[in-house]
Design a protein around this nucleic acid. Sequence first.
RNA 1: GGAUGGGUGGCAGAGCGGUCAAAUGCACCGGACUGUAAAUCCGGCGGGAGGAAUCCCUACCUAGGUUCAAAUCCUAGCCCAUCCA
Length: 425
Amino acid sequence: MSNVIQTLRERGLLRDVTDPALEELAGRGPIAVYVGFDPTADSLHIGNMVGIMVLKHFQLAGHRAIALAGGGTGMIGDPSGKSTERNLLTPEQLAVNLAGIKSDLSRFLDFGGANAALLLNNADWLAGYGFIDFLRDVGKHFRMGDMLAKDSVRTRLDSESGMSFTEFSYMLLQAYDFKHLFEKQGCVLQSGGSDQWGNITAGIELIRRTLGKQAFGMTTPLLVDAAGNKMGKSAGGAIWLNGERRSPYEFYQFWIQREDSMVESYLKMMTLLPLEKIAATMVEHAADASRRVAQRALAHAVTAMVHGAAEADKARDASEALFGGRLEKQSDAELRGLFQDVPSVEIPRADLDAGLAMVDLVTRAGLAESKKEAKRLLSQGGVYLNNSDVPVGEDDRVVTAGHLASDTMLILRAGKKKYCLVGFV
RNA sequence: GGAUGGGUGGCAGAGCGGUCAAAUGCACCGGACUGUAAAUCCGGCGGGAGGAAUCCCUACCUAGGUUCAAAUCCUAGCCCAUCCA
């Protein structure tokens, strides 16, 4: 089996390592690695997937993967990569978030079996640590000069809003996490996004000073789009891994819509498809980019990993039905089949019979946040009925039974890619 | 505690008594071109009523005040930054 570090490098998941000796160490035998996850929401999003994939590759290579939920540090807020002070989470919210994160992670990592992954919560060792003790045990080993020189700190100090002492202390907590895991779990490696470099090296330093041992760190590239912007959010907000917050269909669609220039790197980073397979896919894609072969492969593979193969198939089928062309004179059953997967709403039949204003329909379908926005959409020719290529116009100001695509349903589209199925019951 | 500069739309950032639902940029949403891509161009971007013209309501940290009229002036308070102690 090839060295996991080599694998990560080939797949574009490796940006930096603190010491090249890591590769040799990982080649000698199983090591334990940890990645921290911030519990700022009750679900992880695709930005977190890079970290998850790193753990996944380590686990597949026979190493021990540790996911660390920042139950303790989440109370503080990591200043890295943030331009302003963060809001503090309440303990109740934190508990909810931790549960959600665990459920997300369990779909990627194997938490059972011989080489089980581990999910730990740093609140378990941070929460009860007294401030005085912490300062004596940990704070003593940090020099102000080093701390102030960290990128994450400097950026913030130079900014308008400055930085609170609380956030400034964050790196000590994360450094201590590493030391704790090093001692209790034999964890010798911490991985994180490139913005974590400072926090990771702080931990390595602490271990060296207090235990006289060497620990390692590595960083991964940030997941970015073609414009170089941090990815994770899109039109409707973050791309969550949790199906409740982002349906498999929407998740699938997100990946279908990726730019050509990025697909290859996403395939390498976000899926487990063999590199040869990816290369072949890219050749096929290059032959006719408009078929979006690579995007389809990407969307299906990632959706299958996050939501399961069955859901990925359904998302693909629904996508093909909707983006296939005009949908009219459909059978109710066919459309009902899509109903589960595509965003949809039900409206009382009586409303339709009474004469439903198009503006209201668009708003109730969730395609516009307010009636005003719906009017705007309509007047700009951005609303389509039953996948017609002609936008609805003045004649369609009132929706009637004549607009239905099947006995009880119609398909509403805003712009090119936002759909909503409407059923009248 | 003192001095100075600040708090404006998702962000950045103008405006400093009326013509301000607030310039401009980013982000976002439609449209054209396409391939559910990129780039580019055009339009839009608080809410409600109306087919529309238009009208109404709520908004520039908070609470008061001055004015026919306040994001803009005054008072008090809260918050932030920088420097000094």
